[in-house]
């Protein structure tokens, strides 16, 4: 699997993504600067976490207009898989690859912890190696992770199987108690309609080896390698 990681001014988890991709695929991904206008031929594009442009206007809003994003959108339309993590989720949402918006966490504070998530749909290369309904723990580290779409869109996402992960209690309940940041319908990550694009707030790339004390994220990368190699 060949992958590219896009780097914006203020990205800060691009190294984490590179390390997780390289560990899973054995191939070091390309790092592509946001001002570039061309992408190498790849099977996967990762838009990593961080604070692109300081999140000063609105998280992801500036980066969504970086030159490279035109090419990312073009590739996504051709079916190239795109994974947006944390700030990357915010960026691809702002860029229109996914519906919705990420607002400030309901508690108005940054949250960093290992959070329980439920895998909602395994019919994608991103989630194929999980079991439907499986409760996993991914680290979260964000201030603006409170996902919102209107009720009709929530229904559509549910009907189309576009909800990838939900925040849950340790027991797996998608209840208010399990809702980490106030997201609508406890949504932690969503697909596009064709399930070729995944955006999620949590960080599977920081849960891939023994040092992390949590390897629940590894299956996501292993699944991509299996499907795209």
């Amino acid at each position: 699997m060949k992958a590219a990681v896009i780097v914006f001014p203020g990205s800060n988890r691009e190294r984490d993504a590179v390390a997780a991709l390289e560990a899973a695929s054995g191939v070091r991904p390309f790092e592509v600067w946001h001002r570039d206008t061309e992408l190498p031929e790849v099977d996967l594009i990762v838009v990593p976490g961080g604070f692109s442009y300081g999140d000063y206007l609105r998280s992801g809003a500036m980066a969504a207009h970086s030159p490279i994003m035109r090419e990312v959108k073009a590739r996504a339309e051709r079916g190239v898989r795109v994974l947006g993590i944390c700030n990357g989720f915010q960026i691809i949402t702002e860029a229109g690859l996914l519906p919705g918006a990420l607002r400030r966490n309901a508690a108005l504070k940054f949250i960093c912890k290992h959070a329980p998530l439920r895998v909602e749909n395994t019919d994608s290369p991103f989630t194929a190696k999980y079991a439907k309904g499986q409760v996993v723990r991914f680290p979260v580290a964000h201030h603006d992770g409170n996902f919102w779409v209107d009720p009709d869109t929530v229904k559509r996402l549910e009907d189309n199987g576009q909800i990838a992960f939900r925040y849950v209690t340790p027991e797996g309940e998608a209840s208010e108690a399990g809702n980490l940041n106030g997201s609508v319908a406890n949504i932690a990550g969503i697909f596009n309609e064709k399930r070729t694009v995944l955006g999620l707030m949590p960080h599977p790339e920081d849960a891939v080896e023994a040092l992390h004390g949590n390897t629940d994220g590894r299956a996501l990368f292993d699944g991509l390698v299996e499907a795209l190699s």
Binding site: R15, D16, G49, F110, C112, E205, D206
Partner: peptide, 26 residues
């Protein structure tokens, strides 16, 4: 306090506050 700090970025944190007497970063 410490859940408001990103203790995990870079993916090299072995121990953070509350897990050990010292932070450990690879």
């Amino acid at each position: 306090l410490w859940e408001q700090y990103d203790s995990l970025v870079n993916g090299n944190t072995r121990f953070m506050s509350g897990q050990a007497d010292a932070g450990v970063v690879r």
